[in-house]
Design a protein around this nucleic acid. Structure first.
Lengths: 254, 254
DNA sequence: GATCATAGTCGTCTTCCTGACGATAAACAC
DNA sequence: GTGTTTATCGTCAGGAAGACGACTATGATC
């Protein structure tokens, strides 16, 4: 079989970019790294890198995730819901505008990762080169966050981040994905605070409790209680096997 | 600014593949073309082609769609819902396993297009080289459709098609996307038959009528009636401005 | 022309789910 | 003990959906 004639198609560089989301102190945050070189030198950007010659796209994203956070990607297709410290990882979308990188034609396959609250990020050990930034700060209406502003993300990463946040916000409606933001064992109140942080709303604790405990397979009791939030001790749960929430959790009108 | 060192990253070919769906005679169908060359010579495959050097991914998909069907892609971001014969087009997912094409490393950005019922396809005028195939025939449990079977799609296109069908099935639940399968003016019954074909179920005509006519902005009366389905004349509607269906249309349990 | 088959449209009733919110329980701080 | 915080259970009204009866307006058939 003849290989392709290399002159028959233009060559592309293919990268993966990561939207890593977590909930820290009641705010939805994403991992950003500082660019050390041009273009956009010194600006914050989503972590990412080239796909290697013999590497699948998902494998490249998982590799980048480990390099940036130490998180082990959780294969959603794995049968037993292993309660490791693995993060949820899924493909988000692909961005390939001809001028999105001034150096050459780069197509970036963005991935979305959801992780429980983590210690400080470690990008090569340099604490100044990576951080958890509240998404509201990166996507808000502030002047600094506007495109071209000093706080704006590099390349088209603000768009990628916005798409990833919107994916997360809509997906926790009809799936059990919100548990990916929680540690292996968590309380109903902690799960509710995840929803509140991701959606930016406040939910009625009583109705939320009825909804999540009344959905078969969503939560399974883990057997203990905790008082780490103060107040009356709360029952500990683990994520159940159910991945789809039917009927869905309703996002309140804005 | 220095360009990338070409030896620093492996070169990829980037293609777009199209999952074009339509409803023909109560069945969900997709456009497939016959491959004229190795690998998979003579087998059916999804239409697609290389992304050009200065072309955006969505533009490449729209160009392929015109070439294969004559359909003009409908930009979802266009403000006025132009009732042209345009099809809905959106990015689906990206497939880049290292061995998905034996000739070289190819990353394919699959797109999903939804179109109303069309006349016979025209792939270079050769009626033998393109057809509308029922998806059930391509994805079913038959021996012929199994991977490696004589009726199986080339490359990983069965997987791409399955993902596109699942996207369409879930998206018509909570959006007005089902109207993309209908001509500019249509009846409630025709819209119901779209849902029935895409989901492979039968729906109660009375409850369906109540649901779609009771959702504000989903349908607007077009002013006439038609009797093209036989029986009592039905009112004609046009797709309204609403794109999100809240609460969603519920897919019956299987 | 009467009858029948087909498809569309309007209502009714029951059931389930949700939002609003009162009440109680179990911890900690003072 | 009193107050504060969080968790959990219960009640009630309103809305949406499934099941299904009834009526309407066409074309087809006898």
């Amino acid at each position: 079989m003849p290989p392709y004639d290399p002159s028959a198609f233009p060559p592309f560089a293919v990268t993966v970019d990561l939207v890593v989301l977590t909930v820290r102190s009641h705010a939805l945050c994403t991992l950003v790294v500082r660019r050390g070189e041009a273009p956009y030198q010194g600006r914050w950007a989503l972590p990412g890198g080239f796909v290697r010659a013999e590497e699948d796209l998902g494998a490249a994203a998982a590799r980048e995730l480990v390099e940036e956070t130490g998180l082990c990607a959780h294969d959603p297709a794995a049968p037993p819901p292993v309660p490791s410290n693995g993060a949820h990882l899924e493909q988000l979308a692909t961005y390939g505008a001809p001028d999105r990188d001034p150096r050459m034609r780069v197509v970036s396959v963005a991935h979305l990762a959801l992780a429980p609250d983590l210690p400080a990020p470690r990008a090569g050990g340099d604490a100044n080169s990576a951080r958890w930034a509240p998404v509201e700060e990166l996507l808000g209406e502030d002047e600094a966050a506007k495109e071209g502003g000093p706080g704006a993300l590099a390349f088209d990463h603000a768009r990628i981040l916005a798409d990833g946040v919107e994916r997360a916000r809509s997906k926790i409606e009809y799936s059990s994905l919100a548990t990916a933001f929680c540690p292996p064992e968590f309380t109903v109140g902690e799960l509710r605070r995840v929803y509140e942080a991701v959606w930016g709303v406040s939910l009625d604790p009583r109705n939320f409790h009825r909804k999540v405990t009344g959905t078969p397979g969503f939560l399974v009791p883990a057997g203990g209680t905790t008082t780490r939030q103060g107040g009356r001790p709360a029952q500990l749960f683990r994520a159940g096997g159910a991945t789809l929430l039917n009927p869905p959790m309703l996002r309140p009108e804005v």
